[in-house]
Design a protein around this nucleic acid. Structure first.
Lengths: 217, 217, 217, 217
DNA sequence: AATGAATGAGAGTTCATTCAT
DNA sequence: AATGAATGAACTCTCATTCAT
């Protein structure tokens, strides 16, 4: 069954993405991918040199879309608008392709030392970019004192987690709610315990053992 | 080399942990593990039914230590102390065994659908516990309005990320700095842009294209 | 690019010959052949039923040219002229198409049991023909005593080797030098050790261990 | 079924040799080899890193035995004895393992460009060694004038051919007959046409077309 | 208990051949 | 006639697991 060459390639990429995101890289067999794409095994190798390279291409594509979505924040203009714009952009790119996001967040690390390095350096780049903005912000007083590189890490972690949850089995939330929620976290936190002077005979609070969920075996 | 049965088991677990955390589950061969433990291949199967189960046992052990470290927060006592205590506990458990932490944070997700589910439900449990506390806090006014389940997710994400970084190639930071940093994020965020009235001819700030690092291949 | 049917066939044969002689039968892919011929893959199968048959056709063509070059030697006429004529003919046929010669001498044996048999029987035919002449010569006393079938084999072996060398990376030699050299070998050998009476205390000559080149890896 | 590790290795080598020599490198499947050795597929890879390396090891072993059999000829001692000794040595090594000889003579060239080079350089070494002896002989007058490198080539070719024949489907001949036959060729040739003055009206002998075997398909 | 040789199911990849256009 | 995308049988190699010693 002939087909536009590009179209077939895309079809295979889509199939690969779906299978990878469901089973992970290793459990996904080339047989699964071609079955899903509805082609013969050999056809796969007309479009990709090997299994690994499809995976890499998928992640690379996502990386480049993410890269395009992240803009440097100009400290002299409306910060909130810019920050939210960035968050919104990232959220949009990832939630637009939940399967691919799953693949990135769950399975990409398990691939390869080589690939792990690449992954690492992508995240490092993003962190660095963010840190630079934060340092700038600190200079002009709109970012609180403290380790900006740690702030960058927190931010990225929070974002990853909410997106992993959203693309996984988590609750569906309007994107804007995610954006606003995260922004609010960054802007003012959520925990406003006005550090009540502990009652004299209330020693440094030995917290009680929690009773709840113990997940073992 | 005669050896206590338990000791050998522990040695194998340790070896497995090291190999898994270095190469990931799939790249870690049973041969690598036994080589590192200094025993013969067959011996491995005297102590564990299969490769997967060592991995699972390692993660389960970590889970149970983590579970023990997380305490329910009593809203009527010193919140800050309790929250920090919790964070400190989690951080301690994980940084005390960086290899195992790497394994949990980087490689556990990519293992198995079955295992992913287990992982999921552990995190869900933690999130739920956290959310419950937050809900309680919201009632008495020490947690800001908003989606507490999202806050829980953010918090866990931030924690995961900083710990992954710390056990990976990231900078070494005093544990207390991590604890304080995260607490501060939760308590007041870091971004204090008092939304400056934009200059009249400064419309809702179109952010500039970032020029920097593009990580794609 | 329209083209005479025969011409295209010849072009494919030439391409196949070149690729086969360079890489050997198995390393030569149909893709290589069609690429060299500048046609599409499918076209190959319009002219040949399969890969093997091109190879066979090439060798068969060479065989038939060789067969035509080899003449029966008439014992009653000028032997030297006839023998040299034969050698010259064979040399001409093979050196005129060095690639094909390489293919025949280097790669043809490794192809197939079936093909090996065919090859065998060609050589057997030539040997038989030669042996018949030698037997005839022996009768009239111009061929020395001894196993004529073995002489035939030697002759063919010497010829094969010098031609393999000449079409391979060996030195280029004028054809007539090859012809004369081989003829001389057949006619009087090259080793004229008049078996010098060994010195009394020189027992049956234990040859010395050679020190030189040992080619092994 | 446990077994001495070396013994099993040898068994696999033997099996490989037999299969290779029968079907050639490419037609010989690892399955064939292990079937003949009576072991499972995986076992093969306990002893050899890959298919190619068994082949190489086989040929290398033969090379080293051949190398050991070839001695430099001392021009000042009994030439005939030494030359025959060398021939006898080579013949012995090869006829002692006919299968391996088949493999070397028929299938080794078709393996690999890399391997072909190695093969080449082994033969070149032998040729060079022989040529050196011949040059020496020429100096002291026991080797006739002419291109010694060509003589070397002829000699090797003749030897190869008789051995290929002997290890293949050819007639069985006492080894000493081969040795003597070849020595005689080198020493005096076999064709003793006393170049009869052609009868006046017997022009430079146009040989008659041969009627015999025409091998074409 | 310990060993490590043996196993064999299974995976990725190749490539001669087919066939719809 | 020509094309080149598609096919799928076949092959090599891997590695978790077994088991005789």
């Amino acid at each position: 069954m002939a087909m536009d060459k590009t179209e077939r390639r895309v079809e295979l990429l889509r199939a690969a993405r779906d299978v990878f995101s469901t089973k992970g890289y290793h459990a996904a067999k080339v047989d699964d991918i071609v079955a899903r794409a509805g082609v013969a095994k050999g056809t796969f190798y007309l479009y990709f040199p090997d299994k690994r390279s499809v995976f890499v291409e998928l992640v690379d594509g996502l990386f480049s879309r993410l890269g395009a979505a992240i803009l440097h924040v100009d400290s002299h203009a409306d910060i909130q608008a810019q920050v939210k714009h960035n968050i919104r952009g990232i959220v949009a790119v990832l939630l637009d392709d939940p399967a691919l996001t799953q693949l990135l967040l769950s399975f990409a690390p398990g691939l390869d030392p080589a690939f792990t390095t690449k992954l690492q350096s992508f995240y490092d780049g993003v962190k660095q970019l963010l840190k630079t903005s934060l340092d700038e912000g600190q200079t002009i007083g709109i970012v609180g004192p403290g380790d900006t590189s740690m702030y960058a890490t927190f931010t990225i972690g929070a974002l990853k987690e909410i997106l992993a949850e959203s693309t996984g089995s988590g609750p569906v939330r309007p994107r804007e709610q995610i954006v606003d929620g995260l922004y609010q976290l960054l802007e003012s936190g959520y925990l406003h315990a006005s550090t009540p002077a502990p009652a004299p005979n209330n020693p440094p609070t030995k917290p009680k053992r929690r009773g709840g969920t113990r997940t073992s075996t």
